[in-house]
Design a protein around this nucleic acid. Structure first.
Lengths: 121, 121
DNA sequence: TTATCATATGAACAACTATTCATATGATAA
DNA sequence: TTATCATATGAATAGTTGTTCATATGATAA
């Protein structure tokens, strides 16, 4: 029950007060949540996936259409769509012989817009 | 001057209309911007860096304090702070023998909050 | 100036990632 | 059912990334 004590002694003195240590340990999300969060951002951390998302901003498209638009191989796109799917950033439906991909929700747009805002400052 | 024509022929038929192709090519940011955007998200795509940002939400701290709080080596933290610095997500000031790091602006918080919202759905 | 101490940096290594190629899957249309 | 076609998957490979260890840097205090 007793909270594990964290001894902060560095820089030849105590820079971090116990108060800060407590606040930090309280505010810090669970290790697992932090890991999941990093995993989500990793998905955005590839320009091919960013491009796919941008393309899907404009229209719902099948795999080979995306591949053509981005001038990339079908397999590469399929692999990346899997990553986006696992992160619940895109969803899909079957239409005839094709599988049509579309954006899962508005978070995608918000997150990308925020990033855009940051880099264009 | 004439826009390069993109021939979309796949899935044994034309799924993508010329209209969509035009919209997509117009809306899609420059290759370089897309690259920079991906680079930014890569920075968020590591749980150590996420932790550092969370710690800095609570207080401005020197390198070794962060290392102690996260129970990691000084060098590892220093390397990661460099990445965060390059992405303009943190800033720093010297205080005595120490270098104190702090958050650069509010985008950091907004971006992390958006991500949190997405994963906790 | 010189010694000290916090931080930064470079090299090395292990772990991970994106793409390609080849092929499997599975739904559709005949 | 069977052939076809779009998509998915697996293995292989090249490139990238995070941490550690050892050491360099550079500001401070004496």
């Amino acid at each position: 029950m007793e909270k594990e004590k964290i001894k902060i002694e560095c820089c030849d003195s105590f820079h971090v007060h116990e108060e800060v240590v407590n606040t930090v340990t309280e505010m810090m999300p669970e290790e697992e949540v932090l890991y999941d969060l990093a995993e989500l951002y990793k998905v955005f951390g590839d320009s091919t996936r960013i491009k796919i998302l941008y393309v899907l901003f404009e229209a719902d498209l099948c795999v080979c259409d995306i591949a053509q638009l981005l001038n990339m191989g079908q397999s590469a796109i399929s692999h990346q769509l899997r990553v986006l799917k696992q992160a619940r950033l895109v969803k899909f439906r079957r239409e005839g012989k094709s599988v049509i991909y579309s954006l899962a929700d508005d978070h995608v747009r918000t997150i990308i817009d925020q990033g855009m805002e940051h880099i264009s400052e």
